[in-house]
Design a protein around this nucleic acid. Structure first.
Lengths: 233, 233
DNA sequence: CGAGCGCTTGACCGGCGTCAACACCCGTGG
DNA sequence: CCACGGGTGTTGACGCCGGTCAAGCGCTCG
């Protein structure tokens, strides 16, 4: 998997006051006064599947709120292998670390078609000094990111191959329709779970055979959870 | 390993102005004005090896700066196994997440005799509104914690048993004497690397046999790095 | 309709887990 | 002072899980 394309498109600028997912995002608690302090436009951007949103070590212009789709955070290890450290979903913030260092600590790649809004660092630095509401939200986003990172380590990278695949199935449940779950390309799943793609494939087949999962498409991306208990190893 | 003892001792209150490791810690950049805003005492505490500093889910009074020693952050998974998600070292902050949620997301256990100072949440909430210097420091501590979490996942939980043990040896090098490195009880190392203690023991023996490491004590806690290249798998 | 990519499945093998015995350190008590 | 015992680290034998290599299948898209 060598994603080279940088298929991004500018979709206009956001009026954050009537963002569809405003209650989940950084600006949830801002008031009119706070909004009036935003002098740089917030851009809406779209990326196609496999597009790179930013690179590891890249100088950061801003951070991103994920509005739609899923994004993988990838790190390359010393010996050149790639490891997926987390998958972000709508409402999550990409590139928080840029607030502290102005650089991204990992690579962000769209797993499906994705839409994000980009918030310039300058806006955040300015607002977080004047708005304790944003300050609190930021803290919560940091906390959530850290907890998420620890969860990935504790849940998805521990135990047998079967347990790992089952945990991923539960973690990737659709928030709106919890009986459905999303999978990814098998080599991506391998990089998330520290398994080879053949093993991932075998374990998924096993779960289907035992009646825990049922495939919803021919590409092996969407599954229905038939028996939740079989997944809670 | 069932650490029940809560061997902690109050060692007095700190004057953070002349803290020995002040340049590494949260209060590094505070000025006289900031210090004068601190109305609750900062306590110095000492914990003996295996003492629990706080529990997962516990209501938080404050967060801690690690002054001396090493601390493991432990999470118990759904099926009751224990997983060590990170090891903190002097200058690191324990329990940052309490700033956002007033609860600790993991258990913190002293790996050796440890000394910490406890900063009440009230002090931080008050100061971070008035001091942009503290605000910036906090951001850096969050960023560091998140990067550290991702590093543990990407470096120490990927690849063969040999690679994991070698990575841990490099990560746990003594900052002052980089030719020395610290190991832990073999079952703790297993919980860090997702290996069984016998495998850890075998790989360490292998590295010693091949001339990469030399034991410095009889307990298997301190090793000298003889050949760094053999560890950089 | 054919080429190519990704997913699945099979056979085989090696690395790691399991179980067990043993060595060593250290604290305890005779 | 030494004998004893528990805890921890090491080492060995063996089996199984997951990695490796390879073939085959089914999409999808020219």
């Amino acid at each position: 998997m060598i994603p080279i394309h940088i298929d991004s498109a500018w979709k206009g600028t956001s009026d954050c006051r009537d963002c569809g997912i405003r209650d989940m995002v950084l600006f949830a608690d801002l008031n009119e006064q706070d909004f009036s302090e935003i002098h740089t436009p917030i851009d809406d951007l779209a990326f196609t599947a496999d597009a790179v949103i930013y690179h590891e070590g890249q100088q950061a212009i801003g951070l991103f709120t994920l509005r739609k789709g899923m994004v993988k955070l990838v790190r390359s290890t010393a010996d050149g292998r790639e490891r997926i450290v987390r998958v972000l979903r709508p409402g999550d913030v990409l590139g928080l670390e840029a607030l502290a260092t102005s650089k991204y600590d990992s690579e962000a790649v769209a797993l499906v078609d994705v839409s994000v809004c980009r918030i310039p660092l300058s806006v955040l630095h300015h607002l977080s000094n004047t708005s304790s509401r944003l300050h609190l939200r930021l803290m919560q986003k940091w906390q959530h990111a850290l907890k998420d990172a620890d969860d990935w380590l504790a849940d998805l990278n521990f135990g047998t191959a079967r347990q790992r695949v089952a945990s991923l199935a539960l973690k990737m449940r659709d928030p709106d329709q919890p009986q459905f779950t999303s999978f990814f390309a098998r080599d991506d799943m391998g990089a998330m779970l520290d398994l080879k793609l053949e093993t991932v494939s075998r374990e998924i087949s096993g779960l289907v055979r035992e009646g825990a999962l049922k495939p919803c498409d021919k590409q092996g991306r969407r599954y229905e959870i038939l028996n939740e208990r079989l997944l809670q190893v």
